[in-house]
Amino acid sequence: MLLPAFSYERPAELPGALALLQRLAAAGVSYRVHAGGTDLVPELKRDEAAIGTVVSISRLEALRGVRARPDGGLEVGALTRLSALAEEVRERFPVISDTALQIASPQIRNRATLGGNLLVDNRCVYFNQSPDHRDVHAGCFKAGGEVCHLVPSAKRGAQPLCRARFVSDLAPVLILHDAKVVLARAGAERELLLKDLYAPDGIQRTQVAPGELLTRVLIPASATRRVHYLKLRIRQALDFPSLGVAVSLDGKKLGVALTGVNTHPVVLAYEGALDATLKQACEDGPKRVAPLAQDFFSPAYRRQMIPVLIRRAVAVLSKKDTP
């Protein structure tokens, strides 16, 4: 598939990149940030919409790599490739490493980045199609059209407008680590809890403002927290999560973060005796998500699997508890 025409910038330094983004944002030029390209390039190939500029940040070496933080946590550059991430955090955060290795394929993990996975575009069976295919069903909101095929009653102005589903594997795991992201813009940066990065809409997916760039991910240390992630998919390679369940245990705290079953990661937090919190999480999980018929598995099945996977993840963590 041929890529459409676009202009391409590949700044060499972060300040230059931020200045460029600010300029493009101010001028109202539509742009897309290219990190590893594994999510962006297929989307561009399938998109007829005019793309102004692709801003490649792949030369910003400052955004690559993992550094220890004084508090014992880690600071990971957003441009760190998933294969490198898996290597470099294995000792400190094996669950992050394992999760990274469940994403896509080895070749994709050699290009795809941490930032790219956290900001991976929401997916929908009506959107991730060729322009020809979109002509068949009429373009949906996300494709610039005026309809949602999954929720036909949706109208512009509705919230959410688009139900394309969130599919990052790393987000739920990092959320349960209380990870923060650093969003930089020319001359300034802000920190945001990862769980607050996302917006409940398949088009306006994140809080990243025009001109901003996700540069780093901060993962605080915790002596007591343990996290496990289970990914539901029909094949053990290539596939996005049909459902991803991350579970954390930290003393009396139980955390659950779900991916693949809503427009954004769904986070649940409980405190109390594990029997009770677990029961509550298993009851709440299926109610808090909105899976739609846009995946290999039906919405009902994905809902049904939430408590199953929560219990299994807790079982794994509990087993690790008692050596």
Binding site: V125, Q129, H133, V136, H137, I234, R235, Q236, A237, L238, D239, F296
Partner: peptide, 17 residues
Amino acid sequence: AVQNASFLEYKIPSAFE
């Protein structure tokens, strides 16, 4: 219309299966 006209969505077993 074929809704899964790709190797990502038409599920051929991988080496793991």
